[in-house]
């Protein structure tokens, strides 16, 4: 069952630079591992992550097999107005998950 952990400050002052931490549970199977029988385990990774702040994209990432399982990504943004952060993860095998967090900017 995919699940996301998001850490966004609940409140911030206007103009503050805030840190956003995200973690999505995912195996990030590289496609380079083999079963004992010799069969290749097919690739199954998250390929794209993005974050929108009140509808505007503020951060995007392309992920590759070299990203560890359960991708943990942190980045920064400037708190401009109260509203909502929306996060989206897209990956192989039709993987698509979203999460959101709200912030109050004073």
């Amino acid at each position: 069952m995919p699940s996301a952990l998001i850490n966004v400050p609940r409140t911030a002052k206007r103009g503050d630079i805030i840190e956003i931490k995200t973690l999505m549970s995912h195996i990030m199977e590289t496609g380079y591992r083999h079963l004992a029988s010799g069969e290749v385990v097919p690739r199954d990774i998250i390929t794209s992550f993005s974050c929108r702040y009140n509808g505007t994209e503020i951060f995007r990432a392309d992920l590759f097999q070299a990203i560890a399982a359960n991708p943990f990504i942190t980045f920064f943004t400037t708190a401009t107005e109260s509203g909502k952060f929306e996060f989206e993860w897209i990956g192989d095998k039709g993987f698509s998950e979203t999460a959101s967090a709200s912030i109050i900017v004073e």
Partner: peptide, 10 residues
Amino acid sequence: HAGRAQVSTR
């Protein structure tokens, strides 16, 4: 708008 050019991951 990022404010700080810093990214962390594993």
